[in-house]
Design a protein around this nucleic acid. Structure first.
Lengths: 356, 356
DNA sequence: CTGTTAGCGCGTTCAT
DNA sequence: ATGAACGCGCTAACAG
């Protein structure tokens, strides 16, 4: 939580006054140096940057020219300290490398940038402990808001967040007991919808493959949705048709083969994890299994590639980018003191393609 | 460059002394409150966090207990200001959504986290102007180092970096005139190697498809490498065999078809851009063109998926993750005052698979 | 080993 | 419209 080591970044300088003369163009000019160069007070420089309309046009130009000339870059950490504001938002995702989260991050970053805010992105590696540590680090940096792609948190994390009093947005799923604001979709509802969709297309033995549900609420919710659909259909839960596997293309391939071996009458498999469906499709190609004739395949997330494979893959389309954008917007509203606590369900779509 | 709007984040509080009594557990406890609760001076609390070994075991425990009890989260922006250090490194990539850059970011983030540093990630959207603005913003946040996945910069960006005096690492290619440190590979050398590899496997009419070279040094360098290989082979440059296309799977598909139509004797195509090769492969599957018999396909970057397609795809393997890790390590060394200016070429590998 | 003093670079408040 | 004094929360340098 507390940085283990702090590293010298910028060497201490004696005050420019003591240097006899400010060094225009020298490294790390301060506001004071600009003021001196422009022949005005420090405050005038400060205003020229934050409330230019409050200065006479003349003075303003004088100051801006000096800034330009000296190459002054404002120290926003000092500004933050003095004003008790921050322009940095913290976002924690399970994995930066996963392109699904990248979409959400992109949406957030774009909106925040428009508003002049910045994004400090962290990667929890799917670990609650790591998330807790990162939350501490972000709060320590005094971020003005937190966006968490996860709806499970350690007690200590919850406590820190509450004490800090910063606005928080959760985005991984619709939590039962939200910390604050929520911008998301329901994994359970999506999985249920896809299962029902497969049933409506005539598949009677529908398998379900996901990542481990143990420490992964998203997987758990998806499995729950699948089971709810079976129940709604009046079909029994068959352990042979339910698998949990590691992530990766290879895992999807193995899962499909295993399930077909164990339950030869399976006619469709719903892969509720990242790239599992693609791995399975490639394996089917390799083995010459016709998709969807021998086995239908559906995926969870609409990766670009799914509409280019042969056959193209049926999947759910989740509003990844929109979640990122709306999260940022909700945060901005709250920071402006306008909006109240947002609880958004951004829904999903079932995309029917050739593989089912 | 200067945040357009600053937003109220934490409401101003009157000093806890004036509140009559510190509010233990209240929001935003300060070091002073901890000191009071522990019955020691402010400095002792500060030391308990940064140099615990300098305190008696007794005092240390006293302080840490108080911190725990109050739920104190240190304000590292105040610490930065007072100590002139920073624990945040800035990294700018062309696109967060591109999984290739995500690998580099991951490598950087992992190493930095180990050292107790954080990563402020920004996305330039492949624009030099945007990069300039982001560099300004990051310097304004007083990052202790900068990692740029790009080796072209605006004059103003260069000037700001120089004046700030922060260590910089460039990673997109081996630049001719580096700003400071470089951790990268040579796009030209890699493209040349792949072209020669294809020739050595007997392909005589090798096509080259890349993203636009106009505003993209990486593409330009790759094309240069391809041409250098042709020259080395004593083969002529044939405009029919060179294309520039937009990014995306569909672009790769179209490029392959176009090239085969224009130059029916083409026997191999080297796709030097992200997912172009995959798009082409899928199109070949769709059309029933045998790969590599009718047309051989090679890609540039070793995405996971390339080893799972049917057939598996020949490509280059670039040290994405290693670049991120070594960048962070080089930065850390410099910050510690140890290392000197690193200029690393991390090389590449040609991965021969079924598609050639 | 512990405390005291000074000030990081800027914004807020009030005076002019 | 402009400026001076003060303090944000913390650390460096020194004193004891």
């Amino acid at each position: 939580m507390i940085p283990a080591c702090q590293i010298q970044a910028i060497s201490k300088r004696s005050p420019s006054v003591a240097e006899g003369r400010a060094r225009p163009g020298g490294p790390g000019a301060r506001m004071r140096d600009v003021a001196q160069a422009a022949g005005v007070s420090l405050m005038t420089v400060s205003r020229a940057l934050r409330e230019p309309h409050k200065l006479s046009e003349e003075t303003r130009k004088l100051v801006l020219d000096a800034i330009q000339k000296i190459g002054y870059v404002p120290n926003s950490i000092a500004a933050n300290l003095a004003s008790n504001r921050s322009t940095v938002v913290g976002q924690i995702v399970p994995s930066i490398q996963n392109s699904l989260y990248a979409d959400t991050v992109k949406g957030t970053a774009d909106v925040l940038r428009m508003a002049g805010l910045h994004l400090l992105i962290a990667d929890s590696g799917y670990s609650l402990q790591e998330e807790e540590a990162l939350i501490g680090a972000l709060l320590s940096q005094r971020v003005c808001g937190l966006i968490l792609h996860n709806t499970d948190h350690t007690p200590k994390a919850l406590q820190m967040i509450e004490r800090a009093g910063v606005p928080v947005i959760e985005t991984g799923d619709i939590p039962r007991r939200p910390i604050d604001m929520v911008v998301s979709y329901s994994n359970a509802a999506a999985a249920k919808a896809m299962t029902l969709h497969l049933a409506s297309r005539g598949y009677s033995r529908i398998g379900f493959v996901s990542l481990e549900t143990r420490n992964n609420r998203r997987s758990r919710e998806r499995q729950r949705g699948y089971l709810a659909a079976l129940k709604a259909l009046g079909r029994p839960k068959d352990p042979l048709l339910i698998m949990e596997v590691p992530s990766g293309l290879a895992a999807g391939a193995h899962a499909m083969v295993d399930m077909v071996n164990r339950a030869p009458d399976v006619d469709a498999i719903f892969f509720a994890g990242d790239v599992l469906a693609i791995g399975a499709l490639f394996e089917a190609q390799r083995r010459g299994w016709k998709v969807p004739e021998r086995i239908a395949i559906a995926g969870f997330d609409d990766l670009d590639i799914l509409q280019h494979t042969v056959p193209t893959l049926t999947c759910l389309r989740l509003p990844r980018l929109a979640i990122g954008r709306r999260s940022a917007e909700a945060l901005l509203e709250r920071l402006r003191g306008e909006g109240d606590s947002v609880r958004l369900d951004l829904g999903f779509e079932v995309i029917q393609r050739e593989s089912t």
